[in-house]
């Protein structure tokens, strides 16, 4: 068998058919071999498979590199820019686009060990991008009416609203949800699967369940929530029509909130904020100094 393989590896003379009478036995073997292989599918090149240990090493190397990158100064990146200059480029790239598509956003990579809980928190922007939509769940109809009159509430209701959301009749496009204690448990059981992954499930731990809804809403009205997803946090900071100063103020507010989220993280090894880019809907991503 090994002999046959070696023979096949030799250069093939053109025009040999396997019906040809050949003089040497070795050539005869080669001719039949060629005929069988020609009928088959082309031979695929062997795929390099890494062993478990190699994979582990590779992952570790990648993690250490990302950690080293997180310690690097922003100015060391090849496309580092100061914020006003970056905004000038973004505004130029966004020229003529509809206003709804001119959002400037900030993306920060997060470097964290395995098993560290994701970062989350709230940012209160000095110049908000849009009003945050609030949903309130409560069985107390009078209280809801009172709240509706006082604040701009997007959705409110009791068990009937829960049923509507469960059926899919009501879209989940609100940013925040609050609930009273009497309805919280039924919310978790019925809508936990739907609201949980979107991060809008009222929860005692998060501080979004309370009987005193008035103070809760007052504290949270002007804030936007953020959450770490796929090892990065991306936040809409403003529109290109905002002035440089307004965007800078918002970036500072975001920075404050992110640093607070890192410092209050319940973990032995806190996450690190790495490369931060400023980008817009159609524009390039430009690295800025965030630390």
């Amino acid at each position: 068998m090994s002999c046959q393989r070696i023979l096949y590896a030799r250069s093939i003379p053109q025009g040999i058919k396997h019906s040809h009478r050949l003089f040497t036995t070795s050539s005869l073997v080669y001719a039949t071999e060629e005929a069988t292989i020609k009928n088959d599918a082309p031979i695929a090149t062997p795929v390099k498979t890494l062993t478990k240990e190699q994979l582990k090493k590779k992952e570790l190397r990648k993690f250490l590199k990302s950690k080293a990158d997180a310690r690097k100064a922003a100015s060391e990146y090849p496309l580092y820019m100061k914020i006003p200059e970056a905004l000038r480029y973004l505004r130029a790239a966004e020229v003529g686009q509809p206003n709804s598509q001119q959002t400037v956003s900030l993306t920060t990579l997060i470097v964290s060990d395995k098993g560290v809980p994701p970062l989350y928190g709230n940012i209160s922007f000095p110049v908000p991008l849009r009003k945050s939509k609030i949903a309130v769940f409560s069985n107390d109809v009078e209280k809801l009416e009172e709240l509706k009159q006082k604040y701009d509430i997007y959705l409110s209701g009791g068990s009937e609203l829960i049923a509507e959301i469960k059926n899919g009749n009501v879209k989940i496009d609100f940013d925040k949800a609050f609930a009273t204690t009497d309805i919280a448990s039924s919310l978790t059981t019925q809508l936990g699967r739907i609201l949980g992954p979107k991060g809008v499930l009222p929860n005692v731990k998060k501080g979004t369940v309370s009987d005193d809804l008035v103070t809760l809403i007052r504290e949270n009205l002007g804030t936007m929530p953020f959450r770490e997803r796929n090892k990065c946090i991306s936040i809409g900071i403003g529109k290109t029509t905002f002035s440089d100063e307004q965007i800078l103020q918002n970036i500072l507010a975001a920075r404050k909130a992110l640093k607070e989220a890192v410092s209050t993280q319940k973990s032995k090894k806190p996450s690190m904020l790495s490369k931060t880019t400023l980008t817009s809907s159609h524009g390039p991503g430009l690295v800025i100094d965030f630390n």
């Binding site: 130029a92 020229v95 003529g96």
Partner: peptide, 11 residues
């Protein structure tokens, strides 16, 4: 014109 020249003009 919008795609090629206006970004530079705005810049």
């Amino acid at each position: 014109l919008w795609r090629k020249y206006l970004p530079t003009l705005q810049f």
